[in-house]
Simulated scan of single mutants.
Amino acid sequence: MRTALVIGTGLIGTSAALALAARGVRVHLRDHAPEHVRTAAALGAGTADEPEGPVDLAILAVPPAHIAEAVTGAQRLGLARGYIDVGSVKGGPRRELRAQGCDLSSYLGTHPMSGREKSGPLAATADLFEGRPWVLTPTPETDTEVLNLALELVALCRAVPVMMDADAHDRAVALVSHTPQLLSSLVAARLETADETAVRLCGQGIRDVTRIAASDPGMWVEILSANPGPVADVLAAVATDLEATVRALRALDSADEEKRGGGVLGIEDVLHRGNSGRSRVPGKHGQAPAVYEMVAVLISDRPGELARIFADAGAAGVNIEDVRIEHATGQQAGHVQLMLEPGAAPVLTAALRERGWAIRAQ
């Protein structure tokens, strides 16, 4: 691939453009908002100049509702040898394209499973897709050259290609992406009118659950509007569990011992099923989730503190597998939680204490 055209210079389009430009591909940029193109170009994502002829690959980074129109328009103008979209929904746009008589041999629907709570070109990074799944949904009609161009794009972005059926993809993202967004927003909405004294007690758990609730509502309305059925199916199943959990909690308040026992069993059931489901979430490098030991270290909010911890861990010969930071409310301090392979915690604890770090007992 020598040339590419990115249509839509938001977070995903600009990130793909930055990755391609960094690897020597000449990237041309288009967007209905000229200021987005100027920003992306200033970041080094490519040029606002129109290509002199058809490019190798056109990447359409537009909302799902506009994919069919954008692909059809680009094909009509002969802008590229191959066309892909990077929308988060795949089945509906393909059916629209087929109904419009689009050339499906030169088109391939894709979806990089990566993003951020922020949107727009200023949120883009060249490494956004590194190590992340990038779904490709070819059909028997897909031209081999187009599939190869898409695979080259995925490789240049250092993502991991995953082949899926379009409708199976939509059911999967309803479960692992779209429903979590709504549930995060539902929990965060409880905080909107909560008493200030309650909000001040927020810890890492509520921060984890509500992180993606900061996402752009307009963008998510477009995404959910393109995949409403599968998301509603998952939410209906969650609603069934919620109703059962509410009944179990009410039973725990009962004076009847038998009802309380049933309530305990109901709560245990949902918690155990949660444990089982969580254990299936892929861990490091896509492998089965590892069971890590944790060392919690008190740190002050000063530049260089994390670097010192990592350097001291490296000097002790311990690899940090994951890290989380729990900030202290109203203080310039917090705890950094270091996740380690089993057996490494005593070694690191001793080494850090020797270097003056305060370790929180687990």
Rank of each mutant, 00 (worst) to 15 (best):
D195S: 10
Q204W: 06
D253K: 15
L249T: 11
L201T: 10
H178E: 11
S185P: 00
A239H: 13
A237P: 07
A226C: 05
A236P: 01
P228H: 13
A232P: 00
G218T: 10
S177V: 04
R207D: 05
A236L: 13
P230E: 06
A237D: 12
P180N: 12
L249M: 12
A174N: 10
D195E: 15
V209I: 15
G218C: 01
R207M: 07
I212E: 01
L186D: 04
V173S: 08
T210W: 01
H178Q: 13
L186P: 01
G205D: 08
A174G: 08
P180L: 08
E192G: 00
P180G: 05
L249P: 05
A213M: 02
P180T: 08
V199N: 04
V234P: 03
E192N: 06
R171D: 14
L183I: 09
I206W: 06
A213R: 02
L191A: 15
R200C: 00
C202A: 15
A214S: 11
G229M: 05
V187S: 03
R200S: 06
P180H: 13
A232R: 15
L224I: 08
H178A: 06
D208G: 04
D253G: 13
E243R: 15
R250P: 00
R171C: 10
L201E: 04
L252M: 10
R171F: 03
V221N: 09
D195Q: 12
D195L: 07
V173A: 12
A248P: 04
A248G: 07
Q181G: 05
A226N: 10
T245A: 13
T179M: 12
L183P: 01
A214P: 03
I212M: 11
L242F: 14
D195Y: 04
T179L: 13
I206L: 15
H178V: 06
A194N: 07
S215H: 01
N227E: 11
L235R: 11
